[in-house]
């Protein structure tokens, strides 16, 4: 059974939004809308692994997207590809049978449920990367209800990973 069947995807998004704020990135990250440009996610990924998500990579993410959903989607596609490549090339694992986030819905409609899936993939990078201890310890300091959702999200990802 899918462990997230009993968890609201929107609740997942809210909890992961709280988690994303622990990275203290430059760009505002208080609301779902703040994240739909992809800029925050790119900055978080660079903190997770600055050697892989280097300046060359992040410079391809446009920062001044305003309300232009086409630019947002373009950014989100690059980020999703970056996450999947990172899993394959650095973490040595593939994510199978996981419904990938619909970046069109995130960019055009600020869909919290799809954004939750995207943040879930970033969470997977954080708890598997070289510096994972730092990120896991930060999660363990968070409110219990958030920790619970984060745990369920990680468990779902782990059930879809294959070496």
């Amino acid at each position: 059974m899918n462990p997230l069947e009993s968890v609201d995807r929107v609740e997942l998004c809210e909890s992961l939004l709280t988690w994303i704020q622990t990275f203290g990135v430059e760009a505002p990250c208080k609301t779902v809308e703040d994240l739909t440009s992809g800029v925050v996610m790119a900055q978080v990924l660079q903190k997770i692994d600055p050697s892989y998500f280097d300046d060359n990579w992040i410079n391809r993410i446009k920062t001044e997207v305003g309300d232009n959903w086409r630019l947002k989607i373009s950014n989100l596609k690059k980020i999703l590809k970056g996450i999947l490549d990172y899993n394959h090339e650095v973490l040595g694992q593939q994510i199978n049978d996981f419904t990938l986030p619909d970046v069109n819905l995130i960019g055009e409609h600020s869909d919290a449920s799809e954004l939750g899936r995207m943040l879930q993939l970033i969470l997977g990078c954080a708890v598997n990367c070289e510096q994972k201890q730092e990120y896991i310890k930060t999660i363990m300091m968070m409110e219990e209800s958030v920790q619970h959702v984060v745990m369920t999200a990680i468990q779902e990802l782990m059930s879809k990973e294959t070496p």
Partner: peptide, 30 residues
């Protein structure tokens, strides 16, 4: 108090999970 017991059990589950994650080897060779 059953509520307190439940909270403590939940805390234990979370701590076990994240501690096992901490000790899990990463995908890097070596």
């Amino acid at each position: 108090d059953p509520n307190m017991k439940g909270a403590a059990a939940n805390e234990g589950v979370l701590a076990n999970f994240f501690n096992s994650l901490l000790s899990k080897k990463t995908g890097t060779p070596g």
